[in-house]
Design a protein around this nucleic acid. Structure first.
Lengths: 196, 196
DNA sequence: CGGTCTCTTGACGGAGTTCAAAGCTAGTGG
DNA sequence: CCACTAGCTTTGAACTCCGTCAAGAGACCG
């Protein structure tokens, strides 16, 4: 697991020294979770940054009517947390759950803050990550407004290739903001008109 | 204008010294724009950070079918830019336009970068702004999925009190991702059933 | 005052939702 | 390792809310 993380970090071209990477790694706790396990419960304060070395998480929220809305899929080699709850120590509205048995690296806030202060390039990296998430979030919002369900589905397949075999369709529907029924229809239509 | 900005900055409790504030202010260019003037054209690289001292901007995007989708309203005492285009020097997908005659403070990238390196607290502030935007973006996405048009409209009124007199309804509709027709219907319903 | 932009309203149509049932799949426990 | 169950996916029927189209009345600006 550690090797996976270190390898990932090196490939990000962050100009981090071997020592710094070792420090970052050393500050983490490794954890194995099984499918359906909850990493952050709604109402709880999010105290961790999580990196997924193997497996698959999702972040979702439950609406007033009880409907689940999936805000994020986090496959291996991705970071996740609830930034808002994390930085302001406020109760989170989100639930983070494992969709597969997963292996994680977890940093608590104190330790991560120390790292950020010690390693300037890590701070820069952290900023980049947030910017990227903001960009992704805005794009998704735009897509929600402008694209048809079929286009959303097509985009989804491009963005997350190979994900279909790992996630139930109803969750894809939830992520896209369409009903399961509609998603099924789209897929049937594509079978009849094999786009390519 | 400068006074407005300085006053705003002081009220943010950023632990900036008078000197630092003066530096930040000095690095800006003041600019007056009239209604309908474009500050960032689609396809252009966004080279500025903008603070609105008076007036009102919007950021929108034009879909494949020619429809406008408003991503952000920026009233006075707010920052705006296209962060993605700004940091990566890539063509922007967005258009930033004045909805009213406005007064702005504008920093170009070189100058602002220098400020960020010189003034640590400004960098922290900048990070906070991005985090806040991410949070807002995610909330809006969630609302788009979970709320009815009527709820979206009600939320909008709470979030932007007094905005209705400054923005045409069709733009509110665009921002909310509903048709103008639907928005009108909602408003009529509320006239008949005065909620409170 | 003429023209443009904005808002309302009506009629109509349709894409997507909800509800429900049934077949299928995969995971679990005995 | 099989049987059983719980969850997943598909499908059909009915509905409804929302969007498109179109027309007309105001309001605002030059």
């Amino acid at each position: 697991m550690l090797a996976i993380f270190e390898n990932y970090i090196k490939n990000q071209n962050l100009a981090l020294s071997e020592e710094e990477i070792a420090m970052i790694t050393a500050a983490a706790v490794e954890r194995t979770v099984s499918k359906k396990q909850i990493l952050l419960q709604a109402g709880e304060v999010c105290r961790h940054k999580i990196f997924i070395t193997r497996g698959f998480l999702r972040t979702y929220r439950i609406g007033a009517d009880g409907t689940e809305h999936i805000m994020q899929f986090s496959p291996e080699l991705n970071w996740t947390t609830d930034g808002e709850s994390y930085t302001h120590r406020t109760p989170s509205a989100y639930i983070i759950e494992a969709l597969e048995d997963s292996q994680l690296m977890i940093w608590n806030r104190d330790r991560f803050d120390t790292l950020l202060q010690t390693i300037p390039n890590l701070r820069t990296y952290s900023e980049q990550l947030i910017s990227r998430h903001l960009h992704l979030s805005r794009n998704r919002l735009y897509q929600t407004f402008s694209a048809t369900p079929a286009e959303k589905y097509a985009d989804f397949l491009q963005t997350y290739p190979g994900i279909l075999s790992r996630v139930p369709l109803r969750m894809v529907a939830s992520y896209l903001g369409v009903s399961l029924k509609t998603l099924t229809r789209i897929r049937q239509a594509q079978l009849r008109h094999p786009v390519k």
